[in-house]
Simulated scan of single mutants.
Amino acid sequence: MTHEQGAGPLDGLVVADFSRVLAGPYCTMLLADMGATVIKVESPSGDETRTWKPPVYDDRSTYYLSINRNKKSIALDFGNPQQCRIAREIAAKADVVVENFKPGGLAKFGLDYESVRATNPSVIYSSVTGFGNAGGAGLPGYDLLVQASSGLMSLTGAPDSPAYRSGIAIFDVITGLHTAIGVLAALVERGKSGRGQHVESNLLSSALSGMVNQTAGYILSGRVPQRMGNQHPSIYPYEPLPTADGDLVVTIGNDRQFQRFCTLLGAEHLATDPRFALAADRSHNRADLRPLLVDLLATRPASEWFELLTQAGLPCAPINDIRGGIEFATDLGLDPVVQVGSGERTLPGIRNPLTFSETPVGYPHVPPEVDEHRAEILTWLSTSHPKEQQ
């Protein structure tokens, strides 16, 4: 059984994907894009994201379609002994297993790490949970719960607004990325030692790591970060600023940039004003600086300022909707939309952000229907050998 896309960097790797929803499937899709053969093991009713509508594409959930391309599906009822045996055979012959059941949830089916390792000693077994396998083992791992409990929502919104969630399930995505990194690192180590291992990740730990300067700021200074709207706690200006016809995001990251910015605005005196000359002073005196910048930017529309600042090498950006974001990436030559699948079965998708000079990623297969590849997977099981026999 092959991925049928040629020599991607993970060509020849077999991944048994026992995960569902977002963090695990996002991880395994990235591996599949890079050439791994990913076997998506679903319940007979399928991954629940198949039912998350709207929006839809040909009546299929776009949520499901966004994270399940390049995979092969088999539906198995673990409560059925014969079908559970098939799941164990898949795990025994895979290079990598990815699962996001509650801690201990797979032990009764013989699909936990210890059981799989007994038949597949070199397996890289990756477990994704919401809150780890200690005191949080019984907590459901939904991204919004982690956004709330980690502190992210307390940082999102205006100072006088309610706490807000991120516009995407940000910690599911970050955890999926962390999980992919862990799997790849374990594969490198296995190449040196020949041994498998258990790689564990959880949404809350990924959240605390992913909030970088905010979590570090607290543990190092003792100050609890607060909501600041679109402003940055340590850099100014670093926010949307109004122009003659709309907002433009301006991000001035150092003193040299601020000097050029002031020159472009025709306000060189601001760069030498002791309240604003240094980055820390600009942050401290932002309430004084902001209205001065707003008055200066009010003389031109956002599009003109974008051109002028960009030509001067100063970082700024328009505030786009999703369509505008894709069009902007297209204008920059990033080709963000790719064609997934071939022949009569194709659909558009978002490009994998990685490029490889010698082993490119590929998009040969549309996301599978439930149990679409049962016959192919069963044939592979009957003709291949368990890992310990290879």
Rank of each mutant, 00 (worst) to 15 (best):
V38K: 04
L111I: 00
L278N: 08
K108V: 01
A375N: 08
S127P: 00
R195F: 03
F276M: 02
L297G: 02
D335P: 00
E344L: 14
A244L: 12
I326D: 05
L248S: 04
T359C: 11
N68G: 08
A312D: 05
H269S: 15
V146F: 04
A16Q: 05
V212H: 08
G157A: 07
D273H: 06
R60M: 10
T379D: 15
G362R: 03
A185G: 12
I170A: 12
F328E: 13
R374N: 09
P225C: 03
R20T: 11
P44F: 01
I74D: 08
Q197M: 07
T156H: 00
F356K: 08
S221H: 07
G341T: 09
V370W: 04
S73T: 01
P55Q: 12
G8D: 03
F258N: 00
L381P: 01
G110A: 02
D331A: 15
P301V: 13
S61H: 05
Q390Y: 07
G138S: 11
W52Q: 01
I86L: 15
T119R: 04
R20Q: 04
A317W: 00
T383K: 14
G191R: 09
P318L: 10
T51N: 13
S115N: 03
L31H: 04
F261A: 04
E99H: 02
F171Y: 15
A23T: 08
S342W: 02
V340S: 01
E388D: 12
G24V: 06
G35L: 03
P315F: 15
S384C: 10
S166I: 15
P318K: 11
D33W: 00
V366Q: 09
P44S: 03
E42F: 02
V294Y: 03
E48K: 01
P140G: 06
L31C: 07
V14I: 14
E4A: 14
K40G: 09
G333N: 05
I377N: 02
A163T: 13
R256E: 13
F356M: 07
S357N: 12
P368G: 05
D331F: 14
S154L: 04
A148K: 00
D247Y: 09
Q389T: 10
E388Y: 15
T359K: 12
H3M: 11
F131Y: 13
Y238I: 03
E200F: 06
E369P: 09
V98A: 06
G136C: 00
V250N: 06
Y363W: 10
S161M: 13
G194D: 01
A287G: 03
R345L: 14
N254F: 05
A271K: 02
G313Y: 06
V370T: 11
D95L: 08
D59L: 09
Q389L: 14
R165V: 09
L220V: 14
I322Q: 10
